[in-house]
């Protein structure tokens, strides 16, 4: 199947990526080439087949309920959390004002 320009524009908006008209000119045909390629999957008979969940047999482990059990997974590191922020003030991240 192929998609139109408006669909690609809508998807770009959903993915929060600005696209100019020129960007769309290139993206739409590329997008459709790839979609046409992956469309071949619909030929495959998958009746009775479960979607892959774990590629290698493995069981989900649950961790113990302990605070700051590992400094790499715990809190109390505000300086590190904010160190790379484009805007950080008074211990917060700053973003353009949001009106709810």
């Amino acid at each position: 199947m192929s998609v139109d320009r408006a669909t690609v524009a809508k998807i770009a908006s959903l993915a929060r990526i600005n696209m100019s008209e020129a960007d769309l000119d290139t993206m739409v045909p590329e997008f459709n080439t790839i979609l046409n390629f992956v469309d071949q999957l619909s030929e495959v008979d998958v009746s009775g087949v479960e979607p892959m969940t774990a590629v290698i047999p493995n069981k989900l482990r649950l961790r113990a309920d302990a605070v700051n059990a590992d400094p790499l997974t715990g809190g109390g590191i505000r300086d590190k959390i904010l160190a790379n922020a484009p805007v950080a003030e008074h211990g917060f991240f700053g973003v353009p004002k949001v009106i709810e």
Partner: peptide, 11 residues
């Protein structure tokens, strides 16, 4: 797409 692809992955 996605579910189908994961089924093909199983195959």
């Amino acid at each position: 797409y996605y579910t189908q692809a994961q089924k093909v992955r199983t195959l």
